[in-house]
Design a binder for these strands. Structure first.
Lengths: 111, 111
DNA sequence: TGCCGTACTACGCCTGTCGTAGTATCTTCT
DNA sequence: AGAAGATACTACGACAGGCGTAGTACGGCA
């Protein structure tokens, strides 16, 4: 099971990555993540909505309403140019973090 | 550069891993981490002292004073049996987290 | 009519990291 | 002897992100 602290700071990367492929909406995003984690991580609605709004407020995401489907109109989110750029930054940071943790977690020396 | 949020939740794993090899004290631990990160992550003293105390209060670390060295006596920390067990748990969680983030960050499908 | 799934919002708690700052001891250099 | 620097540690509060809990609202379907 993946805890909140373990995933913290990487959710933005996950969201940005998913949205790189295609626009999506909050509910679908949560399902995508839950499905993709094979039951090891269940993202909370609050966490997700907070995250997308944060990303949007940072100019990394654009949103638009989809009125074509029946039911309540969905708010779709898509990457902005800045979001794409930030995705690169986040990916680089992830690689660094992964390398650092791996270096110690494996019990290897730093030499 | 590795930010606080990126490393959050993995510091325990790093500390436990280092202490698996041999006992150490806070100041040395911070240097070990800083050196091992190749300048990409500088752990703050407060963060470190808070972390070791938390781990100790959870029974994962034991501490003892070293009076043999000159200077202020150092508080050494060593893994307990519970700490070793927790290290396994943390390692497993790290592998899960890494797999999850990689799965999305690489833009790969979940199939 | 009532339940289920979808879509979203509000409020406040908790934890962990960090910023800042201070204390104290010992070594080394001059 | 005095000062600087490395070592060793503590205290206090700020802040952000994830989470728990709860509630609203709409459509479809039986």
């Amino acid at each position: 099971m993946i805890g909140a602290d373990a995933i913290r700071g990487h959710i933005d990367l996950i969201l940005l990555s998913i949205l790189e492929d295609r626009p999506s909406y909050a509910y679908e995003l949560s399902k995508t993540i839950t499905d993709g984690s094979r039951g090891e991580y269940l993202i909370k609605q609050t966490t997700l909505y907070t995250a997308v709004k944060r990303l949007q407020s940072q100019g990394l995401l654009d949103s638009y309403e989809d009125v074509s489907t029946s039911g309540k109109p969905r708010t779709y989110y898509k990457l902005t140019a800045a979001g794409l750029k930030q995705l690169d930054v986040k990916r680089a940071e992830w690689r660094s973090t992964r390398a650092l943790v791996d270096r110690f977690a494996d019990g290897k020396d730093t030499s």
